[in-house]
Amino acid sequence: MKRNSQAFAHQLLVCLLVTMAFGGTIGLGTVWMRHQISVTAKANRALLAEINEVNRRSDALEAEIRGEQRPELLRELNLRFRLGLVPMNEVPVIHVTENVTQRMVERANRWSFPPASRENGPVTLRFAQR
């Protein structure tokens, strides 16, 4: 069989061109991929920095809020704005020493028989007969 050296050369050239094209594609692909990796990494880093920044601001804000809620300042503001608010720790405690039942009955009857009605003298009831 006659060997066609030109054909071989052509094949070699085509192979080389294909290899170059393939290599170039791989190279470009790699460059593009590395660029994308870089872009993504930068975006991630920016995001991380942003998260840290938000956390930092959140911490600073929380500290500020807590500072503004400290009891001493609230008392001062209460006085300055004349709000007349009573601190929750000054809830009046009433110690009941007398008979508790009697006391509750009297308190309930205050609605039915207010002191003003007692000043007008005894209540008289009249019944009409048919």
């Binding site: 066609n4 030109q6 050369a9 052509h10 070699l12």
Partner: peptide, 18 residues
């Protein structure tokens, strides 16, 4: 197979160069 656009010598030279 058809004849190529260049001589074998040139092609071999180019391939070797590459």
């Amino acid at each position: 197979m058809s004849k190529g656009f260049a001589s074998t010598y040139r092609i071999v030279l180019l391939a070797t160069g590459l």
